[in-house]
Simulated scan of single mutants.
Amino acid sequence: MTGTERKCFQKYYPSDFDPAKIPRGTKSGGPKIVQRVMTPFNMQCNSCSENIYKGRKFNMDREKVEGEDYLGLKLFRFHMKCPKWLSQISFRTDLENCDYKCEQGAKRLNSDGEEGVGIRNFGDVKDSEDVLDPITLLERRTKQSRREMKAQEELEGILEANSGKEGVDAIGILKAEEVLKNKIDEEEEERMVKELFRKSIPEAKKIQKTPEKPPIDMKRKNEQKERFAGFKLVKKTSSLSYPPATFSSAYLSDDSD
């Protein structure tokens, strides 16, 4: 309903409208109290097969069970709606067995998702005859024994895993991993140093073989060229003939005197 429809004050009534023909609701049972309650067991809706798990919270109508009590204690009935199909589901307290009884709208399930032992369809309150059937009792005992054996195997597996973990020295393993990591880091550093040293040796040899030539001063070269422009260069020869040296006797005689 929109806001304009809610605020509309003029309603249409047909000509044959008779308010006396409108059915009036009647309250059944005692006064009901809305209470936030968790589901006490796993259940499955009969209308839509929706699974409702134990511990799920619902706003339920609580009422007192009229005409019944247990050792002077009151019994209560709870009404809830299926979250998917909105069908009515009800269950009540069972103080004699310290449990709850399902009454309408769903069927009780055990922890494995199957119908539990002694579960009734919630339209049938009286006990069924097949509960006393020995074959049915044998099947239930077999299922129970299989369930216990499975739980025992799982427990043994958990205990074995825990015992294996207790024998492992976690601190020693961590220390060994740290030492191994440090050793790998040192080897990696040593390898990198050797590789760098190996690359640096050929480069040094190359530098020594090819020394750098001094840069040519072009300005000075041009000045020298202009200075000696008018001179003719003669190539010097090494084979020059000079007369042999001779000493005259006059010089000798003078010396002797």
Rank of each mutant, 00 (worst) to 15 (best):
K64D: 08
I22M: 06
N182Q: 12
S200P: 00
D127M: 11
N59Y: 08
F17Y: 13
D112L: 04
R6I: 14
N42W: 03
P244T: 08
F17C: 07
D16V: 15
L138M: 07
L159E: 13
D185N: 09
K101D: 04
R62I: 05
T93R: 04
K213W: 05
K101S: 11
A170R: 14
Y53R: 08
L233T: 13
K219G: 03
E178A: 15
M149A: 14
S15Q: 07
L132I: 07
D254W: 07
N222F: 10
L159H: 13
L233A: 11
M43E: 02
A245I: 15
T136V: 10
N59R: 10
G105N: 02
K232R: 11
I22D: 03
I207A: 10
Q152D: 09
A176E: 12
E129Q: 07
D255G: 05
N121W: 04
N110H: 01
S128G: 04
Y251P: 04
G105F: 01
E115S: 03
T237A: 00
N42E: 11
K81A: 04
E186F: 14
M1E: 03
I201D: 00
E50S: 13
N182M: 12
H79R: 09
P23Y: 08
T39D: 00
A20S: 12
A161Q: 14
N121Y: 05
A170I: 15
K206N: 08
E63Y: 06
P243V: 04
E187N: 14
Q144C: 12
A250I: 14
I135C: 02
P40N: 01
A151F: 08
V179Y: 14
M1P: 02
C45T: 06
G118L: 02
I135D: 02
G172P: 10
E154A: 15
A20W: 00
E129V: 09
L138P: 00
E129F: 00
Y53G: 04
K232F: 12
Y12E: 09
S145E: 08
G105D: 00
E63M: 09
E68R: 14
R198H: 06
V131Y: 02
Q10N: 11
S49K: 15
G164A: 15
I158E: 03
P243D: 02
S200Q: 11
E203S: 09
K143Q: 07
S15I: 09
Y53W: 10
T246P: 06
S248G: 02
F122S: 05
L73R: 15
T210F: 02
I201Y: 07
R227L: 10
K209W: 01
G230T: 15
K143H: 06
K236I: 12
N51H: 12
N222C: 11
C82K: 04
Y100Q: 04
D257W: 07
I201P: 01
D217V: 08
A106Q: 04
I171Q: 13
V193F: 03
S15L: 06
I207M: 09
D18H: 11
C82Q: 05
D124S: 07
Y100W: 02
L137Y: 04
D133F: 01
F17L: 08
Q224I: 15
E96S: 08
Y13P: 03
I52K: 10
E188C: 14
A204W: 01
K7I: 14
R140K: 11
V234E: 05
R147P: 00
K221A: 10
E114N: 06
Q208M: 11
A229P: 00
E103H: 10
S200G: 08
